[in-house]
Amino acid sequence: MTEDEVLAEFRAADALLEGHFILSSGLHSPVFLQKMLVFQDPQRTERLCRALAEAITARFGQVDLIVSPAVGGIIPGYETARALGCRAVFVEREDGEFRLRRGFEIPAGARVVMVEDIVTTGLSSRECLAAIRHHPGELLGAACIIDRSNGKADVGAPLVSLCKLDVPAYPADALPTELAAIPATKPGSRGLKK
């Protein structure tokens, strides 16, 4: 799947939004990828994650386990694992840190890849990878559907993506005039009240 085909899937789902958005990283951006509008369509999700599974196999070879961060990574992690024919588990925040819960395990010797939906700064990917490293499996690397850092984010492991975008993101105190003139919305899930 080409980068244009990946973006076409997001456009077809009305998931490539323009405006003024506060990202889960706290940065502000004129573009937001509302991936849950993509993931609500099983066929679209299957196409994207099958392509991601092919990219993972090409880079890392056989994979035994996919680990994803909750919430955004659960669906693409599961669907990518299904395409790879392996298991999928996820980490959740407990006392502010990602941990495996629910009886999930990473067996010794398991070949593991972390799958994320979208990488912006790489923070949640780094946190997920740190949790994986507390277990005896062999961490091969990471993968995401869209790398909106255009390869600049350091996730702490080799990263495979279906699409790299160079989308600007700004600290709140350094907004361009045209972006500052638009009311900001925060469409992501991080920071929602429980």
Rank of each mutant, 00 (worst) to 15 (best):
S29F: 06
L175V: 12
P69N: 03
P69M: 05
P168D: 04
G77E: 04
E9G: 02
P42H: 12
Q40K: 11
T57M: 09
R93F: 05
I66Q: 11
H135K: 02
V119S: 02
V167C: 01
E97P: 00
R44K: 14
C144H: 10
P187L: 15
R50W: 09
I132Y: 08
P187K: 12
A12H: 03
V63T: 15
K164F: 01
I146D: 04
D154C: 04
R44N: 12
S125V: 05
A131R: 04
V155D: 12
D14A: 14
V6Y: 13
F39K: 02
R101F: 00
Q34C: 03
K152N: 06
A51M: 08
D95N: 11
I106C: 01
S149T: 00
R101N: 02
C128N: 08
A180V: 05
G77D: 03
G156R: 12
L23T: 10
A8D: 15
A184R: 06
V38P: 09
V63L: 11
I132E: 09
T2M: 11
I66A: 13
E54Q: 15
A181I: 14
K164Q: 14
Q40I: 09
V38M: 08
T80N: 05
C49F: 08
E138V: 13
G151M: 07
A181Q: 15
G73H: 01
A153E: 07
L16C: 02
S25Y: 13
M1C: 10
A180W: 02
Q62M: 08
V112K: 04
T57E: 15
G188L: 04
V160P: 01
T2N: 15
L37A: 13
Q62T: 14
L16N: 04
A169V: 10
K164T: 08
L16V: 02
F39I: 01
F90W: 04
A130H: 06
F60L: 07
R82L: 06
L65F: 08
G109P: 00
H135Y: 08
V113H: 03
P136Y: 06
P183W: 10
A142Q: 10
V38C: 06
A153C: 09
R126N: 07
L23A: 10
S189A: 14
A130T: 10
A180N: 05
A174T: 07
G103A: 08
S189M: 11
E97F: 01
